[in-house]
């Protein structure tokens, strides 16, 4: 692909790279705010209530700003017997892992003076592997939060987190691997361009999509897999002891993870920034395609949250090992076979 080369040229300049990075961080941050707002509004719709509609106009647009101001100016309590560095580190590590994931995600291409530039902070030929690896760091973050709080609820949440991780990282990784096998690359850009050539991978390996989707939901800890923060069981799970902006960061990191997760779904299975199959891009810029797809995925996540009860923790691990793991293996075989036929 010619634009990849161009992008590398461009990214060679540290200033441009830095600016792009800042922009991406800002956009991601902003989109997390949008997601929280969307969730409150859309969940309100599901639950037949209006959701925020007083703060900042009819649609409650400034609600999250108010929340952020409040959280920033609240008292910061660290429990007396907490393991203080670990306690403080939890949200920071979580946030960091989310941003580290975000840098490897390409968000589309822009055309400028006849040539196309890739919109990404950095590109690497193992970006799928890299994202997988960095995503695992967030699990450490949650464990740090749970362990450092010196609270029994948090500790239970942390243990659940580890149990869940053991069950889900494997199918998640295998689903990514199947995609990589089919695309014959671990590079997100290659994966997207391969989908442009063949078809979206959701059609090529629907089983893989389901496995990846479920495992991703579990990895993100959203309902029906929010056992680590199960309100009625563990109050606020690993974040029970967190107050003020420490909690805000943790909360925010969760949504950042959700957004990056949605991006991954789009890149790996929904054709990235490419247009619809058969119809093409319909004169809409690729970046908007990407954003639109991410939006749809996020809405589906919120919808699932509004429509399902929580699964029990032992059932979660059961599901991971007994259902998703075999299916992901089957899918891997299928992907390899299809890849051989296609190539």
């Amino acid at each position: 692909m010619d634009y990849i080369q161009l992008a590398f040229d461009l990214l060679g300049n540290p200033w441009i790279r830095g600016v792009v990075g800042l922009i991406v961080v800002g956009v991601i941050f902003f989109s997390a705010i949008v997601m929280v707002w969307l969730e409150r509004k859309f969940l309100g719709d599901i639950q037949t209530r209006p959701g925020p509609n007083r703060v900042g106009g009819r649609f409650g647009l400034l609600q999250l700003v108010a929340d952020a101001i409040k959280l920033f100016t609240k008292e910061d309590i660290v429990p007396e017997n907490a393991d203080k560095p670990v306690h403080a580190g939890g949200p920071i590590v979580a946030l960091t892992s989310a941003f580290l994931m975000a840098v490897a995600v390409p968000y589309g291409v822009v055309s400028f003076e006849g040539s196309e530039y890739l919109l990404a902070v950095t590109t690497m030929d193992i970006s799928a592997l890299y994202v997988e690896a960095v995503a695992a760091v967030s699990i450490i973050a949650l464990f740090m939060a749970g362990w450092g709080s010196n609270n029994k609820y948090s500790l239970l949440g942390a243990f659940r987190n580890i149990a869940r991780m053991l069950g889900y990282e494997v199918p998640l990784g295998l689903a990514v691997l199947s995609v990589a096998v089919m695309a014959q690359s671990l590079d997100f850009v290659q994966i997207v361009s391969r989908q442009e050539q063949l078809a979206w991978f959701i059609f090529m390996q629907p089983l893989g999509f389901i496995v990846f989707g479920v495992a991703l939901l579990a990895d993100l800890g959203r309902i029906p897999f929010d056992q680590i923060e199960a309100e009625e069981e563990l109050i606020a799970g690993v974040f029970t002891e967190y107050s003020s902006m420490r909690w805000g960061f943790a909360f925010f990191a969760e949504y950042l993870h959700a957004i990056v997760g949605a991006c991954l779904v789009v890149i790996l299975f929904l054709g990235g920034w490419s247009g619809l199959p058969f119809l093409g891009t319909l004169f809409i810029p690729p970046v908007l395609w990407f954003v639109g797809k991410v939006f749809v995925v996020i809405m589906v996540m919120i919808w699932i949250r509004g429509a399902l009860p929580r699964v029990r923790i032992d059932q979660v691990t059961d599901l991971g090992w007994k259902v998703l793991f075999p299916y992901s293996l089957i899918n891997l075989v299928w992907a390899a076979a299809v890849a051989m036929v296609v190539s």
Partner: peptide, 22 residues
């Protein structure tokens, strides 16, 4: 807090942990 009255309109939501409550 539930549909008929919905304090979420004002940005008022329930929290279960006292650490996050105002």
């Amino acid at each position: 807090g539930a549909p008929h009255y919905d304090t979420d309109r004002f940005g008022i939501i329930p929290r279960c942990s006292p650490r996050q409550a105002d």
